[in-house]
Amino acid sequence: MNSIWEYANPRKFMATSAFLLPWVAGLAAICLVVGLVWGFFFTPDDFRQGSTVKIIYIHVPAAIMAVNAWLMMLVTSLIWVIRRHHVSALAAKAAAPVGMVFTVIALATGAIWGQPMWGTWWEWDPRLTSFLILFLFYLGYMALWEAIENPDSAADLTSVLCLVGSVFAVISRYALLFWNQGLHQGATLSLDKEQNIANVFWYPLVIALCGFGFLFLALVLYRTQTEIRARRLKALIAQERMG
């Protein structure tokens, strides 16, 4: 298995991602359909929350993927800074809008779910607010990419922003807990697997989460291909201009 640095060269990445994309997209579709349909149609209501518990199948996976998307961007930024791995920088740029959409979904479904439970559309709850901050980080990150002409400088500057932003995101996360006690329920998917939600809810949730995960992967692969073509377009135009 050749090392991952082999994929520094875009041609190799394009070939591999072209091969992988249909499979990942297919898996995403299957998991999403199975997870959501199972969760939506075949699970009982919660005795306290009634049917709103069905929102869990989109709110929790979206929230988890929103954070994972930023972590992925952090890792790819590090790979760019350390190894000047062009495709990695473009993958970070490609992942940002997807991460932002997941954050918006988490916020929207959180707010809608909060309405019947907490009585207000928006509750300044630490976890919900930290997703609002994450949304601002995504916005700033994408704006910085668009604002800079030279792609290499853009990749360098956005990676520095991503690194510093991540440190401050973690600090904000705990600052918010200090600032306002939460209404949000405890961790739904904690790894030690003590039963915080009943098994009947748990299985469709995990499948839905895989669905969101594969969807994220498929979108990132697809958008990275587009970023690579856009970069190549820029290079060709630069070459033409040089005459």
């Binding site: 901050i133 980080f137 700033g140 704006a143 910085l144 922003l161 932003g165 401050f168 600052a175 918010l176």
Partner: peptide
């Protein structure tokens, strides 16, 4: 320093810096 090379980078500067100001403001 991030936005020095960008023309009219003032607005972008605020968008980048405000989220980073959050913890200091809260505490």
């Amino acid at each position: 320093a991030l936005t020095v090379g960008i023309k009219r980078g003032g607005l972008l500067l605020s968008l980048l810096v405000l989220p980073l100001y959050m913890p200091t403001l809260i505490f």
